[in-house]
Nucleic acid binder design. Sequence first.
DNA 1: TTTCCACAGAATAATCATTATCGTCTACTT
DNA 2: AAGTAGACGATAATGATTATTCTGTGGAAA
Lengths: 143, 143
Amino acid sequence: MEYNTQPLEYFIESCRKNNLKVTPQRMAIFQALVQDGSHPNPEIIYNRVRAKHPTISFATVYKTLETFEKFGLITRVTRLHDTVRYDPEIEPHHHIICVKCRKVINLFDEGLNNLPVPREVTSSNHVVDYSVHFNVVCEDCNN
Amino acid sequence: MEYNTQPLEYFIESCRKNNLKVTPQRMAIFQALVQDGSHPNPEIIYNRVRAKHPTISFATVYKTLETFEKFGLITRVTRLHDTVRYDPEIEPHHHIICVKCRKVINLFDEGLNNLPVPREVTSSNHVVDYSVHFNVVCEDCNN
DNA sequence: TTTCCACAGAATAATCATTATCGTCTACTT
DNA sequence: AAGTAGACGATAATGATTATTCTGTGGAAA
């Protein structure tokens, strides 16, 4: 179990490279994220950070995480978290997702439908389905 | 371009099988979803349906879509739409997502990191990255 | 050193998406 | 005819996120 994939020194270095100031709050937010592999949401991070910085505000957490993501210091699991997106397609398929305009296009591909599922996945979980998310910048957004 | 993957007759049949009443509103909601491949959110569907059913309410649209999904008539692109989930991992990796408790676990797998990306994806898009989402019921939720 | 300025942070309001509640209606049972 | 469950509409409530505004601070420039 190795969570500390991004040691603090690397984080600080990355901030410097991007002209981001390294503040105690930012370090705390980053550490709250790195401390485990739980993919926390802003609320959880906020609560963790409050232990050491009781006056920090929600907005700061949101803005900081957004900034980190913008500069590639962290990622988000999916970029489609703003609203539910429905699909009438119920057969196995995959998705092309434009990270700018959030357009979603279905992708049907036999090869992708038959990926070898790692044992790590099947060993302790019941797999419902899977789908490959291609995060792209689409033609329309590329101009 | 083939969107009508689920003709209306099949929809009606599926409703009957699941003891769901087939109402004009439900047909309209389903057709608003099937009419194109745009993966609309509830707001868009609401606006489309209002053309024929001006008195329909937002709540009905939400509840109906939820019902459809529950019975497997439609799907959602991702089940992590309720809140942003951050990840300190910036190297290519994949996700195991429990559809019940929404736990997310990173998955590192060389094979999955080197999938052949279909030409359909690369031809008109700039691929930022991709990630395989395994939707599962995790050990904890399986009891 | 002093002044200036941009960024960072805190507090708070506002917005947007979603869910819950409640009353009504209707088809179907008893 | 009365009862019941599901469906619908109206609306309130909640929860997540974003915007706004003000204050502070550290370093660049004078």
